[in-house]
């Protein structure tokens, strides 16, 4: 569903997105440009195209984090934690579905520990949990994962900073102009308003759009709860009158 180069995208609202420099999130201080971004008045095919993943071959449990870190050998247990379904729809700003796009997620385990060489938090790894998933949206823009709810974890920002439970979410959308990485938070988590990374967002409504809602109707009785998380990518529109004079 990649766009051809007759398509433009609604301008990104960089006051809604977090600014590069957000000093309460300390790492951003030395990693934020000081010069203004250079705006392209005329985007080219380089910006208006991107990879689509309709024909990218995924493994059968790539979107099932309950099963995809137990290759059926000597560790065929299930991970410990709250079994949840995370699902939703990828749409653009005009509510048009974004089909055939890659949605990738990664997360800590139920104790807040990441299966990454550099995570030295004392909470233990779960031998049956990797924490990575990917899927491609269907023809109507839907995606679905099965996982366990991640735990909060401490990080050395302030002397006592804790991340809310979150799942990192990556979506390509129809072009590199729509490329987006964000984080999913969980409804009702009291750590959300305390987090310097969440608070890089200036608008509380923007934070609200990153909070997945408990969805009882989507849950499976005696099996898993469900959380709904919809993703909005930039609106695609045709450039009807460009260079046609």
């Amino acid at each position: 569903m990649a766009q051809n180069d007759h398509t433009a995208f609604v301008m990104r609202d960089r006051g809604w997105h977090p600014p590069a420099y957000a000093p309460a999130y300390k790492t951003s201080v030395a990693r934020s440009p000081q010069q203004a971004l250079m705006s392209l008045q005329t985007p080219t095919a380089s910006e208006l195209t991107g990879p689509d993943f309709d024909n990218f071959v995924l493994g059968p449990v790539d979107n099932d984090l309950l099963l995809n870190f137990r290759p059926g050998t000597d560790r065929d247990g299930l991970p410990i934690g709250e079994r949840i379904i995370v699902y939703g729809r990828v749409v653009d700003q005009y509510n048009k579905p974004v089909p055939g796009t890659l949605v990738e997620v990664w997360q800590a385990n139920a104790g807040g520990r990441y299966r990454h060489k550099k995570d030295a938090y004392m909470a233990p790894l779960d031998p049956n949990f990797g924490g990575v998933g990917r899927t491609v949206t269907d023809a109507d823009g839907w995606y679905r994962f099965r996982t366990i709810k991640p735990g909060p974890y401490p990080w050395p920002n302030d002397v006592n900073s804790w991340r809310p439970a979150h799942i990192h979410v990556s979506v390509m959308g129809p072009s590199i102009s729509t490329r987006l990485i964000t984080q999913l938070y969980f409804e009702g988590d009291p750590l959300i308003p305390l987090c310097p990374i969440v608070n890089t967002l200036n608008d509380p409504e923007a934070v609200d759009t990153l909070v997945a809602r408990l969805d009882k109707a989507g849950s499976r009785p005696m099996d898993s709860l469900a959380y709904r998380f919809d993703i909005v990518t930039r609106g695609a529109l045709q450039t009807y009158f460009e260079n046609q004079g």
Binding site: V10, R12, D13, W16, H17, P18, Y25, T27, S28, V91, Q93, Y94, N95, H168, V171, L180, I181, T182, Q183, I197, V198, T200, L201, E205, A206, V207, T209, L210, I231, V232, T233, R234
Partner: peptide, 8 residues
């Protein structure tokens, strides 16, 4: 709709 906001 607003675009989903970015996070690190």
């Amino acid at each position: 709709y607003p675009e989903s906001p970015s996070q690190t």
